[in-house]
Every structure is written in structure tokens, then in C-alpha cells.
């Protein structure tokens, strides 16, 4: 078995070396060079001493946290109630279906809905509320981000809750636990793995939603993702962009440690 397999795994190793390790090393490497190609620590010095970048980092983490918490709060009951329905697979597919529609199309829909004369403002108009500028606000950014991430939170939660044996709940009730006690002592702790993979699947991508901040958030550079895009595509200062990339990689490692390494990759 051995010799045969090793030979066929060569492309896999080429991939590991050239497209996993090399890019990470290159990003780290570039973060130590300035625009003229001289070795420097100035990128890091500037990052950690300027209020602008620290505020941006704080903002990114704060927004990603908000997005994660809001999706979790909406998703948990959804997943919980869905496990009690008949035709579970069908409902699951209805949750998955929106994820197959391009993210940009969904963001574009909200440009229409949140516009000054758009759907939401005319809806609010029925109640006598005057049209407001909804697009290009933090509120609209949050709503769209939550909307896009929602299925990615519901799916792992649904899987985790669905695996929970019904006999556990019956046993808990037999032993005299109330519904709330059963939920907090049995159901929730046992679904924690789903919560973890959901948080992983939502939090990290939320740090880098630069297209949303551009389209919905009003073109302001408020998150690290936008800052990277700006440094690489607009100002062409790759050293600085790479520095922020390194910070994002570190943030990712922190999240991975917090959410436990046991069940990596429960993305879909």
C-alpha cells in the first residue's frame, strides 16, 4: 500500500508547501519590509503606536463579536425548534439554499432595501415614519453581515442538536428536572460543540468582510479586512497590508484556541 499511496500524494504535498506554507511565510516576511524593499520593523511599530490601527482592530473585533453574538442568539432557538419538526432534511435544505446565492447578490439586495426610497423606508412610511438614511450606516452593515452569516451558524447548531439522543431528555425528565433545568443542564452543554464550530464559522470570516463595508458600510475603512484590501489594492503598500494580515492570522489562532481544536472544520 505504502509506496503507491506516497507517490499519488505528491500533488497534495506540493499544495501544502506552495499554497499553504509558502503564502503564510511570505505574508510574515513581507510585513518586515518597507515600500522600498528594506528590512524594517516600522510596520509593526506604526501598527502598535498609532491610534488609528488600534482603533480599527478594536472595531473589527467588536463588530465580529456583535455579529457572532447576534447570529448565535437568533440561530440557537431556530435550530432548537427545527429539530422538533417533521421533514427535518427539507428544512435544513431551505436553510442551506440561501448560502448558494452569491454573497454579492445578497449584499446588492440590501442596497435596494435600505435605500432612501427603498423597501424598508416605504414600509416604515406606512407607520408615518419619515424616510431615513439607512444605507451606509453601522446598523445596515450589522444587519447584512448577520443575514449572510445566519445559515453558517444554524447548520452546525442543528447538527449538534440533532445528534442529541432523545433518551437523555427523557431521562432528565424522569429524574424530575423541569424543562428549564433540562435545557440548561442537558441540552445546552451537549450542544456546545455545535456552538463552538458555529462561532468559528462566523467570527473569523466576520473579521474580513471588506466587500460589505465597501458596499453597505459606506466605503469607510472600519475593519481590518478593509484595511488589507486598501493597502494591497489601492495604496499598494504591501508591507503594511501584510502586517495587518499577520495580526489577522494571530487573531485566528486565538479564536481556534478558545473554541477548542477537537472539532476543527465544522464549516458546513
Amino acid at each position: 500500500m505504502k509506496k503507491y499511496n506516497t507517490l499519488l500524494a505528491v500533488p497534495y504535498f506540493m499544495w501544502l508547501i506552495f499554497f499553504v506554507l509558502a503564502p503564510v511565510l511570505l505574508v510574515v516576511g513581507y510585513s518586515f519590509f518597507d515600500q522600498n524593499g528594506h528590512f524594517t520593523l516600522a510596520n509593526y511599530a506604526e501598527y502598535f503606536s498609532s491610534g488609528k490601527y488600534l482603533l480599527m482592530t478594536f472595531n473589527s473585533v467588536w463588530y465580529a463579536l456583535l455579529i457572532t453574538v447576534i447570529t448565535l442568539v437568533i440561530s440557537y432557538p431556530t435550530a432548537y425548534f427545527l429539530t422538533k419538526l417533521k421533514h427535518k432534511d427539507l428544512w435544513l435544505l431551505l436553510i442551506i439554499l440561501p448560502t448558494w446565492i452569491n454573497l454579492l447578490l445578497k449584499a446588492y439586495a440590501f442596497i435596494g432595501i435600505f435605500g432612501v426610497h427603498g423597501g424598508l423606508n416605504s414600509f416604515l412610511g406606512f407607520f408615518g415614519i419619515l424616510p431615513k438614511q439607512l444605507l451606509f450606516t453601522d446598523f445596515s452593515f450589522l444587519v447584512v453581515a448577520v443575514y449572510i452569516q445566519l445559515p453558517f451558524m444554524i447548520i452546525p447548531l442543528l447538527n449538534a442538536l440533532d445528534e442529541l439522543p432523545a433518551s437523555f431528555i427523557a431521562a432528565s425528565k424522569d429524574l424530575g428536572a423541569s424543562a428549564t433545568q433540562t435545557f440548561f443542564k442537558v441540552v445546552f452543554p451537549l450542544s456546545l460543540n455545535g456552538v463552538k464550530s458555529g462561532v468559528q464559522a462566523v467570527f473569523i470570516p466576520s473579521l474580513s468582510l471588506f466587500m460589505l463595508t465597501r458596499l453597505i458600510g459606506g466605503n469607510r475603512v472600519i475593519t481590518l479586512g478593509t484595511a488589507i484590501e486598501e493597502h494591497f489594492m489601492v495604496t499598494q503598500n504591501w508591507g503594511k497590508g501584510a502586517t495587518i494580515g499577520v495580526v489577522l492570522i494571530l487573531a485566528m489562532i486565538v479564536v481556534m484556541i478558545f473554541t477548542g481544536e477537537k472539532k476543527v472544520g465544522g464549516k458546513k
Binding site: P23, V24, V27, I204, L207, I228, G245, I249, G265
Partner: peptide, 12 residues
């Protein structure tokens, strides 16, 4: 590559 943010993958 699964857990990295898209922007980092793209930039690298």
C-alpha cells in the same frame, strides 16, 4: 486555509 480569513488568503 479553511479557517483563515478570506482577505488573508487573497493577499497572501
Amino acid at each position: 486555509l479553511i479557517v483563515s480569513p478570506d482577505v488573508t488568503i487573497g493577499a497572501s
